[in-house]
């Protein structure tokens, strides 16, 4: 277990700034998810931590000691690659024992450790099998066991489940989380899937264009995105900029959205706010058509819930409701959109 501090990490590739002023403290035994879209710098940051890339500037401290000058092969990091990178010329047992072999651990000890880890990842009996004869899920487990065999100081995973089908991916997410809790190893997991990050991370770090947009617990990041990017990324689809008047009615395009509550009550002027789809209500249009009226563009049945997309002029709003309580609106219907402003918050544009 180790505490890792990243201070002002910058990385440039020619004229391209891949990482900009990344500052992050990771506690011992913490499970961090680096979340972001393609090219946001999450894999570059992971590779810098592993020592596979050098940062252009900045400092990296592991338990207070400078990690920058330590070569990759001496950092004692266990890494699971996106391609898994299993050694094709070695069988399952030899793959897992490889790191111990390099460290000069006696053959009996390393083979025993490999067998133990095979049991931990649920692959008992596959010790002698060639890696080419394994299924996708089995290969994932071997890669995880191989990285953990060296008892790493840091456990790094670069989108390890991206190539798996949804069922297997969810199953492995739970297994990895349980294993990480059991071993208490400090883990950094890269993903572009917010659901994956939400389900396994202790803390999510959202990156955009090489910068950290927001870091926080899954609940914090989900419930209170601080920027428009994070809100979009986490699926907070209702972002708009109404006028506030210090406790007076909140107005959007001349329509009264109701009275502000909580922190919003003190605002005055135009602010960008966000409301999650589950805090939107849809009602039949009243006779005087005084509310915010939208037209249903799309209705999506997601099993447990129903998602309705409505347009108001250029704006789009999303409403979500559990299936058995969802209002019966069809595409083309008009509906009055109401926001629960007690669950709205201000975000940075």
């Amino acid at each position: 277990m180790a505490r890792l501090s990243l201070k002002n990490i910058q990385k440039t590739f020619g004229n391209f700034q891949a990482l900009e002023d990344v500052n992050l403290d990771i506690a011992s035994g913490e499970f961090i998810c680096l979340l972001g879209g393609s090219g946001c710098g999450k894999t570059t940051l992971l590779r810098i931590i592993a020592g596979l890339e050098d940062q252009t500037s900045g400092e990296m401290l592991l338990e207070g000691a400078d990690l920058t000058k330590v070569h990759c092969h001496k950092r004692n990091v266990g890494m699971v690659f996106q391609s898994l990178a299993l050694f094709p010329h070695l069988n399952v047992g030899q793959n897992i024992a490889y790191g111990l072999d390099v460290r000069g651990v006696a053959k009996n000890t390393r083979l025993a450790r490999a067998r133990d880890l095979l049991e931990v990842v649920g692959l008992t009996g596959l010790f002698e099998r060639p890696v080419s004869a394994l299924s996708g899920g089995q290969r994932q487990r071997v890669a995880i066991a191989r990285a953990l065999a060296i008892e790493p100081t840091l456990f790094l995973m670069d989108e390890p489940f991206s190539a798996l089908d949804a069922g297997l991916r969810e199953h492995l997410q739970i297994e990895v989380k349980k294993l990480q809790r059991k071993l208490g190893v400090t883990t950094i997991f890269v993903t572009h899937d917010q659901n994956e990050a939400m389900s396994i991370a202790d803390r999510i770090v959202i990156l955009n264009e090489g910068r950290i947009e927001q870091a926080g617990s899954p609940t914090e990041v989900y419930a209170r995105p601080q920027t428009r990017f994070v809100a979009d990324f986490m699926g907070t689809n209702n972002i708009f900029s109404p006028e506030f008047s210090q406790g007076g009615p909140v107005m959007l395009d001349g329509v009264d959205l109701g009275s502000p509550q909580g922190d919003l009550a003190a605002l005055s002027g135009k602010y960008t706010i966000a409301v999650r789809p589950e805090y939107v209500r849809l009602k039949p249009v009243s006779a005087d058509e005084s509310g915010l009226i939208g037209t249903v563009d799309f209705v999506r049945h997601l099993g447990a819930s129903v998602e309705t997309e409505l347009s108001v002029g250029e704006r789009t709003f999303i409403h979500t409701m559990v299936s058995d309580r969802a209002p019966d609106f069809q595409v083309g219907d008009r509906a009055e959109i109401q926001f629960d402003l007690s669950h709205a918050w201000v975000i940075l544009s």
């Binding site: 592993a50 596979l52 092969h73 001496k74 391609s83 990178a85 299993l86 490889y98 390099v102 191989r146």
Partner: peptide, 11 residues
């Protein structure tokens, strides 16, 4: 990444 994996494992 196979060579990188060998590096991270201490080679």
């Amino acid at each position: 990444s196979i060579e990188e994996a060998a590096l991270t494992l201490g080679t």
